[in-house]
Amino acid sequence: MKKIIAILAGVLLASMACAADDPQQAIPAKLKVMFERLDKPLDIAPVVVHADWAIVGWRQDGRGGRALMKKTHHGWSIYLCSGDSLKDAGTLETIGLSAVDAAGLAAKLKDAEAGLDSSALALFSSFEGTVTMNEASNGEGHAGHEGHAQ
């Protein structure tokens, strides 16, 4: 019996480690912990990744936008939130991505968003301006931006 429990525990830990390493699971999970509430579910899609950078589209309570994420030794962190500006490779380079990473991320985002409906794209575009985030904010930088989709 102890052997079976040990095997099951090992399998569970291995599956949890794999989920933490998979940005398609780790990024939405992190954002949901930070921002989702029972009365306001958070929809995260698409999640596009290139090197140590990702752009995710988010929708919540009639609002939306895009978040630029960066992988650090602590996992994925929100670098900044914006709207359509994150679709542009030149803007991504200005933010600090290499030309290769900026072009790769922009191309992947274009492909991922090609299959989305126009209402999702409109919400992503509705985020006004750019909000820089940092790990110390723990998501507090999101406060005060409730009017983006209004």
Results as ranks from 00 to 15, higher is better:
Ala54Ser: 13
Asp39His: 13
Asp43Met: 08
Ile27Asn: 12
Ala114Gly: 03
Ser82Trp: 06
Gly65Pro: 01
Ala45Phe: 13
Gly83Met: 05
Gly83Asp: 08
Ser77Tyr: 06
Gly62Lys: 03
Thr94Tyr: 02
Ala45Tyr: 13
Ala45Ser: 15
Pro28His: 08
Leu42Gln: 05
Phe35Trp: 15
Lys32Ile: 02
Trp76Thr: 13
Leu105Arg: 03
Ser15Val: 13
Asp84Phe: 01
Ile44Met: 06
Ser85Asn: 06
Leu92Phe: 12
Asp61Tyr: 13
Cys81Tyr: 12
Gly90Ser: 12
Gly75Arg: 04
Met34Asn: 02
Gln25Phe: 10
Leu68Arg: 06
Asp88Glu: 13
Ala114Cys: 01
Gly90Tyr: 05
Pro28Asn: 07
Gly90Ile: 08
Lys30Ala: 15
Val33Cys: 00
Ala14Ile: 14
Gly57Gln: 05
Ala51His: 12
Val47Gln: 04
Gln25Pro: 00
Val56Gly: 03
Gly65Val: 08
Tyr79Asp: 10
Lys110Tyr: 07
Glu93Met: 13
Asp39Ala: 15
His73Leu: 08
Glu93Trp: 01
Ser15Cys: 11
Asp21Ala: 14
Asp52Ile: 04
Leu68Tyr: 10
Asp88Leu: 02
Pro41Cys: 09
Ser15Thr: 15
Cys81Ser: 11
Leu80Pro: 00
Lys40Phe: 08
Leu42Ala: 02
Val49Cys: 08
Ala19Tyr: 02
Lys71Phe: 06
Ala112Val: 02
Ile95Arg: 01
Asp88Ser: 14
Asp61Lys: 08
Leu38Trp: 07
Ala45Lys: 15
Ile95Gly: 01
Leu116Pro: 01
Val33Ala: 13
Asp21Asn: 13
Val49Gln: 07
